[in-house]
């Protein structure tokens, strides 16, 4: 077998990876202009805010965060997977060059922050200063998102949320129809089982994840059975704000992320429910 071709970073020769073609990264960088990149970076990272400055002016580069990262631990302790290394290769380099980086660098940053970090916050638990490394990675994600350089699947989920407020391109009709269909299905087993839609004054409002009504509909009927047996006074949302899987959060698409969360709270307020119960 021929040796696989590797990708070696121009800026950081230690950063060697297998090719990982993705339309969202490879195609979207073609139209980027340098001034656009510079403006976006300085707007996001150049801001003099406490959470950015605290990390920049405190991190002593001790490498103690490395042991926290599952990417680092599961990649034979490759130093380029350490959380601090990810900051160095993205945010620090961007700031060092005052935003004057090229499209290829943005692609490399996008690969690092989207596909080599799960923004789990574990590194902050291992940092002697408790620095919010994830926050910085999130800002780099925001830069990449604003430039449109995002892995295709993630960008598609974000578009789905922006359009339909759920992850799976479900319309409100699809959603209400699925709830009624599931109620019918279970009717064969439990004749009194109901899936109340938009019931005012219910105690609990239940929110599924996007995939449940779309591909795992049996989750719906099982939840309904549990609620019935437990005697919970429950309801589901009748509007299209029912999906709690907030994918825009992972892109730091603040606008859509805000709409998703606001929709969930709006339902609860409108129906005067006491508790919100989420799948997860």
């Amino acid at each position: 077998m021929a040796a696989k071709e590797k990708i070696v970073s121009r800026e950081f020769p230690e950063y060697i990876r297998d090719p990982n073609p993705d339309v969202g990264l490879d195609e979207s960088i073609k139209d980027l202009k340098p001034e656009q990149i510079e403006k976006t970076i300085m707007a996001v990272l150049g801001a003099q805010t406490a959470r950015i400055r605290a990390v920049m002016e405190t991190c002593i580069h001790c490498g103690l965060c490395a042991g926290a990262c599952q990417w680092y631990l599961s990649s034979d302790k490759d130093p380029t997977f350490a959380p601090v290394a990810k900051m160095k290769m993205t945010a620090w380099e961007m700031l060092k060059r005052k935003g004057k980086v090229d499209a290829e660098f943005i692609k490399q940053s996008a690969r690092i922050v989207f596909t080599e970090c799960n923004i789990c916050h574990r590194c902050s638990m291992y940092c002697p200063y408790g620095l919010d490394i994830t926050f910085i990675i999130g800002l780099v994600r925001r830069i990449c998102f604003m430039l449109g350089v995002v892995p295709q699947r993630m960008m598609d989920q974000d578009h789905s949320h922006a359009t339909t407020l759920n992850q799976v391109w479900y319309t409100q009709n699809d959603w209400v129809d699925t709830m009624q269909w599931q109620e019918e299905e279970v009717g064969a087993e439990f004749k009194d089982l109901r899936i109340p839609i938009d019931k005012e004054g219910a105690e609990v409002i239940w929110y599924p994840l996007g995939g449940e009504p779309k591909t795992n509909t049996y989750h719906i009927e099982r939840t309904a059975k549990i609620m019935m047996v437990a005697g919970v006074d429950w309801t589901v949302a009748g509007r299209d704000t029912w999906d709690t899987s907030n994918m825009p959060m992972f892109l730091r698409d603040f606008t859509t992320m805000n709409r998703v969360v606001r929709g969930l709270y709006d339902n609860a307020a409108r129906l005067r429910v006491k508790k919100m119960v989420l799948t997860e």
Partner: peptide, 28 residues
């Protein structure tokens, strides 16, 4: 210089300690 971590230690720790408590965890 980043020797300022002498003071910032207390501030950044206070923030992350509070964040972790907010998530229902601890950061030590």
């Amino acid at each position: 210089t980043r020797l300022a971590h002498m003071f910032y230690f207390f501030m950044t720790r206070a923030f992350m300690g509070s964040q972790a408590a907010g998530w229902g965890g601890k950061d030590w």
